[in-house]
Amino acid sequence: MAGWSTHKGTVITLPLANIDTDQLIPARFMSVPRSEGYGNYLLHDLRRAPDGTLDPDFSLNGNAKPSILLAGANFGSGSSREAAVYALVDAGFHAVIALSFGDIFSSNAVNNGLLPARVSDADWNALSGATGDAQINLEQGTITIGTTQVSFALEDSWRVKLINGWDDIDLTKQHTAQIAAYKTQRHQSAPWAWPAHVD
């Protein structure tokens, strides 16, 4: 995963609350290998009429190539499916800005270089009324659209991870000795925590 600290792009607004992971990617697409790309499945059913044609009134179906999504509260609630993040990333998104996020969605997003930026009600309204080019600065924690600039909330550890593009497994391998020591201690103090042998 490549890190990034600034991003310039186009914002698209999806002013709906509770866009859950079943909306972001319906379950029937989740058996596809990642190498085939998940971008076409993003919000698949929401942006199409029942006959499968794209709904011209749906914001995402325009000609613009958006990379920043301004969405309603409780974005990404629901299942742990990381495929919801793959769909956004593969469709070209770098950030989702919302009033709040599902907890598992946020960690999945950060693990894939996608910024889940939390903003206040007032700032959300300011952003949705703004026009012009958009820019996100991770170091400063700011989003700028045209002449409007607001700050977003993000855990510090996540900010660092997004900027560096760190891979957790590599980081954890540096602690191998500590993990081994913990395991030994746990095995001694709570041997019952290992599954009993079943014949």
């Binding site: 742990s80 960690s107 957790d168 497994i169 993990i179």
Partner: peptide, 14 residues
């Protein structure tokens, strides 16, 4: 519950 990247992490490191 955890996502796929985290599942991979648990597989690799417990």
């Amino acid at each position: 519950g955890i996502g796929a990247t985290e599942v991979a992490h648990v597989l690799a490191t417990q």
